[in-house]
Design a protein around this nucleic acid. Structure first.
Lengths: 144, 144
DNA sequence: CCTGAAAATAGAACCGC
DNA sequence: GCGGTTCTATTTTCAGG
């Protein structure tokens, strides 16, 4: 194996983490290195799969999806459930988990009423347990 | 309120969602619109806070953080717990939730052994319940 | 890993609907 | 208000060392 991420790579990665559209010139200034060198480092991080993509973060409240809920669900119809989640716009995250429940999903709805409707569509698939987020304190942090 | 996101904005947002570094020229070709117009639309989405940022996605396995676990925790020392999470590199997400438990955190560790160590550092803060992710089927999806 | 050129992209000013 | 065209500045890419 062995892709070595050195201190400069980490600096670059910390900058890119929350500023994915930052121009390479600016990154190169911050890490005191020439543009082509920084570009090559980023390219290698991409090629090695350390960087797996660049995403845009949307304010879900502005998209009428401001209510975050985590739902644990136990089902015997796994394929059906996964397929259901893939075409349900409310579901943003889906994990196969260990323990009493099969799956954990993260759901974004406009309101609690809409959440209730979503839960209704879930009951036929199996028992579930919901935890509404009252505050999203931290999200998507990888590096300090 | 009232920021109207039309069909073209949505097209742009769908493109940017998973390709945040895509050049504006390329976006403008895909949506059949001039470069400055696309740029202005993106600027407005940023100004209105619909776009709240651009982030880089890292392969956590490549960073020796490939084990994903969700931990529900009940504590009476909220401030202390939040502060603990903020300085704990393992914690990537932190939510204040309703229900039997106070908080839900997402934790990324190298191995299950490391997870156990992390859990040890948590016991003094209150009772908790862990769900290890055996498969991350979907993450961070907002738009279809 | 750096420098220096050419090429591509982004940004600004202005025009028309 | 919205989008298009042109021109300029910046950034990226590609030589070569």
């Amino acid at each position: 194996m062995g892709y070595v991420i050195d201190e400069i790579d980490q600096q670059i990665m910390r900058l890119l983490q929350h500023h994915a559209r930052m121009p390479i010139v600016q990154i190169s200034k911050e890490v005191n290195m020439s543009q082509p060198s920084v570009k090559e480092r980023i390219l290698k991080l991409e090629e090695n799969g350390v960087i797996s993509g660049y995403s845009t973060i949307y304010d879900l409240a502005k998209l009428n999806r401001g209510t975050t809920t985590f739902i644990l669900l136990k089902t015997e119809h796994c394929e059906e459930f996964v397929h259901f989640c893939e075409q349900a716009i409310e579901v943003t995250d889906l994990y196969r988990i260990s323990g009493e429940y099969n799956y954990l999903i993260k759901v974004q709805t406009a309101t609690i009423e809409e959440l209730a409707e979503f839960q209704d569509s879930l009951v036929k698939l199996g028992p579930s347990k919901s935890h509404i987020s009252m505050k999203n304190i931290m999200e998507h942090r990888v590096l300090l």
